[in-house]
Design a protein around this nucleic acid. Structure first.
Length: 243
DNA sequence: AAGGATCACAACCGCAATTAG
DNA sequence: GCTAATTGCGGTTGTGATCCT
């Protein structure tokens, strides 16, 4: 028995939104706030699926959206974040205030992919196209969060060790690579600042500014906002182990 | 000017994750 | 703990705009 549809498809509009539908949605959310998308269409007098309402609001009607062309800085930031996160568009969007995951995804597929290809860079792997690296090798150097590979266990000291490391499958690979927050001996920067976005509203330096990795101050203060993970740990990609 | 090709982006679909009962 | 409902995400599609021949 399959899951029931999220809405009654027979009586819902599809396709482009009209001005009137937009106005209804905006005024309803202004009055009642976001949430409860399933019941929203009926309450707002819209013949739309709740998912459609949510998408319309999040991607186009939200007042805090930044419309217009992407800047060169945003381009480079998207490329950097994509090289770290892959197609995790919602995570990438979280680092670009005013931009949505859908917008970034479209922009990636239509502009940045081509831009990287013109630079001779494979947009999927962020490696030179003519490097002659087999797909298997490229895959092995990526961090995978796939369920089957993750199989993580928590040790008594709180570290996370991933079983079945890449090296077991590809023992001849040189994977001397450590992903860690950039070392700042005098001043610790958050991930946002490390990408050159000082003074961004996402910057957490002002909260967790002084501690270093070895600092003995409370964990809440020393947590380092790396890829959205509040951690003071270092990722060692040879073992995918938190040190 | 017409028509086909390509581009850009809004919207949909299906699935996974999360939440509620 | 289980099941169903709901939400969120990423991939894909549809369509209007623009470019090219």
């Amino acid at each position: 028995m399959g899951r029931s549809p999220c809405c009654e498809k027979a009586h819902t509009n599809k396709g482009a939104w009209t001005k009137e539908e937009d106005d209804r949605l905006i005024s309803y959310i202004r009055a009642h706030g976001e949430g409860c998308w399933r019941s929203l269409p009926k309450a707002a007098g819209l013949l739309r699926c709740g998912k459609s309402c949510r998408l319309r609001w999040i991607n186009y009607l939200r007042p805090d959206l930044k419309r217009g062309n992407f800047t060169e800085e945003e381009d480079e930031l998207i490329i950097k974040l994509h090289s770290l996160l892959g197609n995790k568009w919602s995570l990438i969007a979280g680092r670009l205030p005013g931009r949505t995951d859908n917008e970034i995804k479209n922009y990636w597929n239509t502009h940045i992919r081509r831009k990287l290809l013109n630079r001779g860079i494979d947009p999927a792997t962020h490696r030179p196209l003519n490097e002659g690296v087999s797909a298997a090798t490229v895959t092995a150097t990526n961090i995978s969060f796939g369920k089957q590979e993750q199989q993580e266990t928590s040790s008594s000291n709180g570290s996370v060790v991933v079983k079945g490391s890449i090296l077991e499958r590809c023992p001849d690979l040189n994977l001397e690579l450590t992903i860690s927050p950039p070392r700042q001996p005098e001043k610790t920067l958050c991930f946002v600042c490390s990408l050159g976005l000082q003074n961004s509203k996402d910057c957490s330096c002002s909260v967790a500014n002084t501690p270093t990795v070895n600092n003995t101050s409370p964990a809440s203060a020393s947590a380092y906002d790396f890829l959205g993970l509040k951690t003071n740990a270092v990722w060692d990609c040879t073992t995918l182990e938190m040190k």
